[in-house]
Nucleic acid binder design. Structure first.
Length: 712
DNA sequence: CTGCTTCACCTTTTT
DNA sequence: GGTGAAGCAG
């Protein structure tokens, strides 16, 4: 198929044609990365390579879907049988096939992020750790990092140096126990377990290597160490291993990704071929110059020179506003007056909460829009409830699902009964399901309710043996009494819930259609567990796209607005001042800017409503780093800040040396709580209240005047 | 045990 | 502004 290569430039062609061994493709923004991957995949197949020996891995379902589709389009005829999917989907498939070798129960479940957060909370409670002391979210984060670094609880405990670390080690250990008790794996396990399996069982490794001969890894800059290890295990000795990525677009450090993996590729794979794709087909020169100038302030990157293929174009606009209302209006007005079709426009922001004012204004102006990401379909309570019933139908020993719905709709099974079941389960090592058959020490009412509940689940189990997912779902909605819960109500929320349930049903039918044979309940549940968003990005058609900078990666638009370029958003207030985190924030903006083809507008505001409060804002430091030659500034009715306002604003200034001993960030000592650090100051003078985070006692609030705090 | 109210706390990004 | 936990009356 010679025409396969005609549309490629020389570098792209080299990347596609590369025959043997490791190759790293450094694909700058807009350089035709997906094109290279899909063509390489298609090329291998058309050259006679067995499609089943090709493994193509990405990070998101969306990217995987696109890759499969586009590769398939290049290969008329037989459906592509290669594995094309996410790291997690690959890990899951491997573990399902080799559950026994991996030492897993034959039908293990998958704990999603809310399941695993629930388990962390329980584990914390078990060890008497309050949520004030350690936020469950961050504990969950620490555990996740440890798992991805392949550090087991035992070693984590040995490594723990401080008080918090010791506690987290305990939580980590019982979290793992609890996960095992409900026969479930969390997302991290889906990567880490395969790595361990391949490391410990040479036989399995040999077989997998025999099966997988060609690897294609997308977004290599976003791999964490477990994913990197997985690639290395499988890739060693493979016929080819192609890693594609761009360190300037690495934006998942917080999730354990390490740019080092891509920066170190040639050392890890000696003799690797490296090809840089530096021709940009997406953006005009001005946009590219602005974005490149910005990201060149990063140190941990390879020097590169992106060239635009599209001519100079218009300057990047920087719009400055006095307040957020004006910002929202100006952006909406520009969009309304624009000749571009709505589908060609995107508004990008740092955090989801920023979408709201724009949504309101777009609604007011009757401009259609879609929000990418946002509230996730599979995270809605009603969807999770219904799926929990389905999970029980497939695997009654799924404690997490059991607890979720045993009392939904309300059956008179309350906290006391649940505590009983928990205790019995812990003592006997049996699942809640088993224990609930003969519960000791619960009220008669609860006992009858449990019996009735069990009968319902038993019936669903039978139904699930040979029923399709959608049939079981439909059945379950009536027998459990779940749909009656929201029926016949005019409440907007209830209407939405009914719609979501209907939506779930049709997605199940869609799943069955796509997997004509083998659309079992278990397989449907696997798919759903790894599907995080409802692929909303596919339906953008005639609507403006609203998206976070993260979710915008991989997309492109004629006209892009990156809004709210202020300190606190970009860089985000939760990101520290250390260089690595700043670099990541800078890359995030870079990713946003390089989404634009012809028009890019960056906005800043002097004042903004945050959590219902008007707050002074300062322009992002990144604005200074964008080359002046590429931009054109415009100030909208900008009034100089008042003196008081300026004083307030300047307290955000990091280089403004504040000598007060009890200011934000200072370490202090308290006679009772020991050492800590000041998190926030509220009010002023005698009224000043301080929130202090103590190393051992957690968060406490004080009125500064009365608290016995000394600088430490 | 349930359902309602209040209250605190919060807010990064996601497979 | 929104959500989830905690508190309280029925």
């Amino acid at each position: 198929m010679p025409d396969l290569l005609d549309s490629l430039n020389p570098e792209q062609k080299q990347a596609v044609l590369h025959e043997k061994g490791p190759i790293l493709v450094l694909a700058g923004a807009g350089s035709g990365k997906t094109r290279v991957i899909t063509h390489r995949l298609a090329h291998l197949v058309s050259r006679g390579v067995d499609p089943r020996s090709i493994l193509a891995v990405t990070f998101t379902n969306k990217a995987a879907g696109e890759m499969r589709e586009r590769a398939q389009a290049l290969l008329p005829g037989a459906p592509l049988t290669s594995f094309v999917g996410t790291f997690h989907a690959f890990g899951l498939r491997l573990l399902r096939r080799r559950a026994q070798a991996a030492g897993l129960p034959p039908r293990f479940g998958i704990a999603d992020s809310s399941d695993s957060l629930a388990l962390v909370k329980e584990a914390m409670e078990e060890h008497g750790i309050s949520e004030q002391m350690l936020p469950p979210h961050s504990v969950r984060g620490r555990i996740s990092h440890a798992k991805n670094a392949m550090i087991p609880p035992q070693r984590f405990a040995q490594m723990a140096t401080d008080f918090a670390g010791e506690r987290i080690a305990k939580v980590y250990a019982s979290y793992e126990k609890r996960l095992a008790a409900c026969g479930a794996l969390d997302f991290d396990d889906l990567i880490v377990r395969p790595v361990r399996l391949l490391a410990e069982q040479p036989g399995v490794l040999a077989e997998e290597r025999r099966r997988i001969r060609h690897l294609l890894i997308d977004e290599y800059q976003d791999t964490n160490s477990a994913q990197d290890a997985l690639v290395k295990r499988l890739g060693e000795g493979a016929d080819s291993l192609a890693a594609v990525g761009d360190e300037d677009q690495a934006i998942y450090r917080w999730r354990g990704a390490e740019v080092e993996h891509i920066l170190r590729f040639e050392e890890d794979f000696p003799g690797a071929k490296v090809i840089a794709l530096e021709r940009n087909y997406r953006s005009t020169d001005k946009i590219l110059a602005a974005a490149s100038g910005l990201v060149s302030h990063n140190r941990r990157r390879r020097e590169k020179r992106l060239r635009s293929d599209r001519g100079a174009g218009a300057a990047v606009r920087i719009w400055r506003f006095d307040e957020d209302r004006a910002e929202v209006e100006a952006v909406a007005r520009e969009i309304a007056g624009s000749a571009k079709p709505p589908g060609e426009t995107a508004i990008l922001y740092r955090v989801n909460a920023q979408s709201r004012p724009f949504e309101e204004e777009l609604v007011r102006r009757k401009i259609p829009y879609v929000v990418v990401g946002g509230m996730k379909f599979y995270e809605r309570a009603e969807v999770k409830d219904v799926l929990a019933y389905l999970r029980l139908a497939a695997r009654p020993e799924d404690d997490l699902a059991f607890r979720r719905v045993v009392n939904v709709p309300a059956r008179g099974i309350g906290a006391a009964t649940l505590d009983r079941l928990a205790a019995m389960s812990r003592e006997s090592g049996k699942s809640w399901w088993e224990v609930s058959a003969d519960p000791a020490g619960v009220t008669d009412r609860a006992r009858t309710s449990l019996t009735r509940f069990r009968a319902v689940v038993e019936e669903l189990r039978e139904k699930a043996v040979d029923g399709t997912p959608s049939a079981v779902l439909e059945h379950l909605l009536t027998v459990t009494g779940y749909s009656a819960l929201y029926e016949g109500s005019d409440d907007r929320e209830d209407v939405a819930r009914r719609e979501n349930i209907r939506e779930l049903l049709s997605s199940a039918r869609e799943f069955e259609r796509r997997n004509a044979e083998g659309a079992t309940v278990a397989e449907y549940l696997d798919t759903v567990a790894l599907a995080t968003d409802a692929d909303a990005a596919g339906v953008r058609g005639g609507a403006i796209t609203l998206s976070t900078l993260h979710a915008a990666k991989g997309l492109e638009f004629g006209q892009v607005f990156v809004v709210g370029l202020e300190e606190g958003f970009l860089p985000h207030g939760q990101s520290g001042e250390d260089e690595d985190e700043l670099e990541e924030e800078r890359r995030l903006l870079y990713v946003g800017m390089t989404r634009a083809e012809d028009a890019l507008t960056l906005t800043v505001t002097n004042r903004r409503l945050v959590y219902g409060r008007v707050e002074p804002r300062r322009p992002s430091r990144f604005l200074e780093e964008i080359p002046k030659g590429a931009v054109e500034e415009k100030v909208f009715g900008y009034s100089a800040p008042t003196a008081a306002f300026a004083a307030h604003a300047s307290s955000f200034e990091p280089e403004d040396e504040d000598q007060r001993p009890l200011r934000r960030g200072r370490r202090v000592r308290h006679p009772r709580y020991g050492y800590g650090v000041i998190l926030t100051e509220e009010g002023s003078g005698d009224e000043t209240r301080l929130t202090v985070y103590f190393d051992r006692a957690g968060k406490k609030k004080f009125v500064a005047r009365y608290a016995d705090l000394t600088p430490a």
